[in-house]
Computed example of a mutant assay.
Amino acid sequence: MVGWAIAVHGGAGVDPNLPPQRQQEAKQLLTHCLNLGISALRSNASALDVVELVVRQLETDPLFNSGRGSALTANGTVEMEASIMDGTKRRCGAVSGVSTVKNPISLARLVMEKSPHSYLAFSGAEEFARQQGVEVTENEYFITPDNVGMLKLAKEANTILFDYRIPTAGKCAGLESPVKMNGLPISVYAPETVGCVVVDSEGRCAAATSTGGLMNKMSGRIGDSPLIGAGTYACELCGVSCTGEGEAIIRSTLAREVAAVMEYKGYRLQEAVDYVIKHRLDEGFAGLIAVSNKGEVAFGHNCNGMFRGCATQNGFMEVGIWD
Results as ranks from 00 to 15, higher is better:
3 G>N: 09
5 A>I: 02
9 H>K: 02
20 P>E: 09
20 P>Y: 03
20 P>R: 09
22 R>D: 13
23 Q>P: 01
23 Q>C: 07
24 Q>A: 13
28 Q>R: 10
28 Q>K: 10
30 L>G: 02
35 N>R: 14
37 G>T: 09
40 A>C: 12
40 A>M: 14
41 L>D: 07
43 S>P: 04
45 A>P: 00
46 S>W: 00
48 L>F: 14
51 V>Y: 00
53 L>H: 07
53 L>I: 04
54 V>D: 06
55 V>F: 08
57 Q>H: 11
59 E>V: 05
59 E>G: 02
60 T>V: 02
61 D>M: 01
62 P>H: 13
62 P>F: 13
66 S>M: 08
66 S>Y: 09
70 S>L: 06
70 S>D: 04
70 S>V: 10
71 A>H: 15
71 A>Q: 12
73 T>P: 15
80 M>S: 00
80 M>A: 00
81 E>I: 10
81 E>R: 03
91 R>I: 00
96 S>E: 10
97 G>S: 05
101 V>F: 09
104 P>D: 05
104 P>M: 07
120 L>D: 07
120 L>M: 14
120 L>A: 10
121 A>K: 14
123 S>T: 09
123 S>F: 04
124 G>I: 04
130 R>L: 13
133 G>K: 09
139 N>R: 06
140 E>W: 12
142 F>N: 08
143 I>L: 07
151 L>N: 11
154 A>L: 03
163 D>E: 13
169 A>K: 11
170 G>I: 03
172 C>S: 02
173 A>H: 13
175 L>R: 15
176 E>F: 06
177 S>Y: 12
180 K>W: 08
180 K>H: 15
181 M>C: 12
181 M>E: 15
182 N>M: 07
187 S>A: 14
188 V>M: 13
190 A>D: 14
193 T>R: 02
194 V>G: 06
195 G>I: 11
197 V>G: 05
200 D>M: 14
201 S>I: 01
208 A>K: 09
211 T>Q: 03
217 K>I: 06
221 R>N: 04
222 I>M: 04
222 I>E: 01
228 I>S: 07
229 G>T: 07
229 G>V: 06
238 C>G: 02
243 T>D: 06
245 E>Y: 10
246 G>I: 14
260 A>M: 01
263 E>Q: 03
269 L>Y: 08
270 Q>A: 09
274 D>Q: 11
278 K>E: 15
278 K>C: 12
280 R>G: 08
282 D>L: 05
283 E>C: 00
284 G>S: 09
286 A>P: 07
288 L>Y: 05
292 S>H: 04
297 V>K: 08
298 A>V: 03
306 M>Y: 08
307 F>V: 07
316 F>Q: 05
316 F>S: 04
317 M>P: 03
317 M>S: 11
318 E>V: 04
319 V>P: 05
323 D>V: 02
